[in-house]
Write a protein that binds this DNA or RNA. Structure first.
Lengths: 144, 144
DNA sequence: CTGTATGCAAATCCTTTGCATGCCT
DNA sequence: AGGCATGCAAAGGATTTGCATACAG
């Protein structure tokens, strides 16, 4: 598993230990292709009989964000969502206010425009977060 | 005060009451031209000898968001920021990761691009939030 | 009057932390 | 062995809520 090797590599370089819990968490995260919260991850692992304490989940998530494996986002509900980054291009999100669905999209036009404006202000861009709130196709049809 | 009249107007239409506390909060909010949290608002009012309970601050802020007077945003610190909307054009934000400064900018290019993509997916846009995290000019210079 | 709004304190949700113990390297 | 990692439970911050009381319309 290539992704896990990268994780080991970086762990060594930052002398972080590769524990049983971290391995389980990292593998799980790389297998997920949607956003999740710390608590959702906790429950998923519990269901699979890998109960890892919430404290460890939170601490590991933080470590993984620092390592650059995982990105943290907020969609306005007062909790943090995570998603793994390896092999994922940077992208933006539509968030449906009715059903909560999150739809990804990407746009070079937006990225370039932001970089242009940032350059004018001499702001060094680290991360761009574009979230569009609204109502998805399905919910519009359902909702009448 | 024109803004306050609009507030009264809408309050009546939605049969919400115009209490002493709400009046103080609304006037304060319209006088602010930066983002603030519920707790910051609570403390500002307290300093001005208008101590209003946190519960009321939170409840009123929610009412004002529903009324469309105030927008709620999260910048990734697990708390909500508010800003009044009247007379403010929709805009995006640069957030400095070092000093926490928030710089506003606006771009029709971004707005149009998002509307275009949303239309393709038949997503009904309610609100766009573009946040660019990075390091501001000043902090780059200070930071060496 | 009648229904909202307020204040208080308690409760909730999400996340972090102190501390003793466990386990990679 | 030595230090980072874990688990637990308690603490923390932000926000919400139940309930009795106060007040606007």
């Amino acid at each position: 598993m290539k992704e896990f090797d990268i994780f080991k590599e970086i762990s060594h370089r930052q002398n972080k230990k590769i524990t049983k819990q971290r391995s389980i968490i990292v593998k799980k995260i790389f297998s997920l292709h949607k956003h999740f919260t710390a608590d959702e991850l906790f429950k998923m692992l519990k269901r699979e009989n890998s109960e890892i304490s919430r404290a460890t989940i939170y601490r590991t998530l933080k470590v993984l964000v620092d390592m650059g494996f995982v990105e943290e986002r907020e969609f306005g509900q007062g909790k943090k969502y995570y998603e793994h980054v390896l092999g994922h291009e940077s992208h933006s999100h539509f968030v449906c206010l009715v059903c909560g669905k999150i739809i990804e999209f990407k746009s070079k036009v937006i990225e370039d425009e932001i970089k242009k404006i940032a350059a004018e202000k001499n702001f060094k861009v680290e991360k761009i977060s574009t979230i569009v709130y609204g109502i998805c196709d399905e919910c519009q049809k359902k909702g009448g």
